[in-house]
Simulated assay, not measured.
Amino acid sequence: MNPSARKTFNEKFNDEKYSQFLDKLNNGLREPVPFRVAETPVFLTADFRDKLIAAGNDIVDTILRPDFKELTERAIPDFWRVANENDHPHFIALDFGICKDEQGNIVPKLIELQGFPSLYGFQVHLGDTYQEVYDLPGDETIFFDGLNKESYLDLLKKTILGPYLSDEVVLMDVNAPEQKTAVDFYLTQKYIGTPVVSLSDLIQDGKKLYYMAGDEKKLIKRIYNRLIFDEIAGDPEVFTKVADIRQPLEVEWITHPNWFYRISKFTMPFLTGDYIPKTQFLHQLEQIPADLENYVLKPLFSFAGQGVIIDISKEDLEAITDPENWILQQKVNYEPVVQSPEGGVKAEIRLLYLWPDGDEKPTLAINLARLSRGKMIGVRYNKDFNWVGGTIAFMPR
């Protein structure tokens, strides 16, 4: 981490400044941001930034393998398989913990990955707000690959809209206005014009989908999909009440829902490299490791850390009835590298890629960061702490 940038920031920081930051962040939004935003951004050195880029490149190379779909076919649950899958994901998110290796070097370690969009709109607004309120140096950026705000938004627009008009593409989630990520939905609408709709707003007529814009019924040509099927899995009859989006409809998906499963924890056992923790499918485990305390057990088909067993025993492994749906992953130990007024804080960096149709490979575009003092990264593990929550990393241009 960049010690000089951290020292300068901390010397100028006070609670009044943080209050100003939150006021500025929420100003003009439909609703205040519903999750905790950290007091500080993360400041990366050029060296650590380059390690992140190299780690991401290795993972993207695996996704680009010609047999990647064949490798990940089992990842897609039959009930949630959606027709008309395309040939690549439009969004890739890679989560890296900031750790220390055996030689004492600060390194990224892959935690999870997903072929699904993240806060591509909100992070722009967040970065702008940190920059303005805290008067951060102009030679620091939140973007990769030489992008700036204008060229980034152009790439985002190219990815989501493609050849279509903004009112022909809808951003869709289940009960979209009520989601914690709705702040991102409406900022995306502000930046590129995509209407925000809920699953129940989709009107099916034959193989076509429509939505209502006031009194006008409009044809949907693309869905910018923010729906995670886990959120509707509790209702097996859901598609008798709303449009059955699994059918071969005349609509494009950005990104297609099947990629949520293909690029996920399921992919981890196929990855290798210095920044990848050793990971195996539980059913392929030949011998239980003697040092189980250095491993974590994860269900393949869950999200937001649900079902993860951190402190595992031999009995935990033997109790699993569907080992093909679990992975055993070498535990990653976060290093508390972000110095707060009250001590070190752990951090995670999410690399966010955009892959518009027509491009040969994805572009690393922007990032998201999270700070934690709890046992795991995430809101539910960090209640009542300060200097934790969602943030963003700045790095040298």
Results as ranks from 00 to 15, higher is better:
Lys208Ser: 15
Leu136Lys: 02
Trp387Ile: 01
Cys99Leu: 03
Lys158Asp: 10
Pro269Glu: 01
Lys17Ser: 10
Leu161Asp: 00
Thr159His: 08
Ser151Phe: 07
Phe68Arg: 08
Gly206Thr: 05
Ile309Glu: 00
Phe144Arg: 15
Leu351Met: 11
Asn57Tyr: 04
Gly162Cys: 09
Gly358Pro: 04
Leu351Phe: 03
Val124Asp: 11
Arg74Val: 02
Val170Lys: 14
Leu202Lys: 03
Phe48Met: 13
Gly127His: 09
Thr391Met: 02
Ala304Pro: 01
Gln114His: 00
Phe96Glu: 05
Leu94Ser: 11
Trp326Leu: 02
Ala38His: 04
Tyr334Asn: 11
Phe79Ala: 00
Leu219Gly: 01
Met268Ser: 05
Ile160Val: 15
Gly343Leu: 08
Leu25Cys: 09
Val308Pro: 03
Ile98Met: 14
Ile312Leu: 12
Ile223Lys: 14
Pro32Met: 07
Leu113Trp: 01
Lys207Cys: 09
Pro236Asp: 01
Leu113Gln: 07
Ser4Ala: 12
Gly234Ser: 00
Ile276Arg: 09
Gln114Thr: 10
Arg397Cys: 13
Pro277Ile: 08
Glu168Trp: 11
Thr45Asn: 13
Leu371Asn: 05
Ser302Asp: 05
Pro163Asp: 04
Thr188Ile: 12
Asp384Phe: 01
Phe68Gly: 05
Asp244Trp: 06
Gly358Leu: 05
Gly343Met: 09
Leu165Ser: 06
Lys383Glu: 00
Gly97Lys: 09
Thr141Phe: 09
Phe266Asp: 01
Asp135Phe: 02
Asp61Trp: 06
Pro41Ala: 10
Ile76Leu: 10
Asp201Gln: 12
Leu297Pro: 00
Leu368Met: 11
Val170Asp: 10
Val60Ile: 15
Pro177Met: 13
Tyr211Asn: 10
Gln131Trp: 07
Gln20Pro: 03
Tyr186Ile: 11
Asp201Asn: 14
Ile160Glu: 08
Ala319Ser: 14
Leu29Glu: 04
Phe394Tyr: 15
Arg397Asn: 14
Lys12Cys: 01
Gln20Glu: 15
Asp184Tyr: 03
Asp205Lys: 15
Gln189Glu: 15
Ile263Phe: 10
Leu297Ser: 01
Gly127Asn: 09
Phe43Asp: 11
Arg81Ser: 11
Val82Gln: 02
Asp357Asn: 13
Tyr130Ile: 05
Gly214Leu: 06
Gln179Ile: 00
Glu335Gly: 02
Gly378Thr: 05
Gly28His: 07
Glu216Val: 14
Pro341Ala: 07
Pro163Gln: 00
Leu161Cys: 04
Phe122Asn: 04
Glu73Tyr: 07
Glu70Tyr: 03
Gly206His: 05
Tyr275Gln: 05
Trp253Ala: 07
Asn14Pro: 03
Tyr210Cys: 06
Gln330Ser: 02
Ser19Ala: 14
Gly56Trp: 12
Phe143Gly: 12
Ala243Met: 04
Pro66Cys: 01
Ile228Met: 12
Gly374Pro: 03
Arg262Gly: 07
Leu352Ile: 04
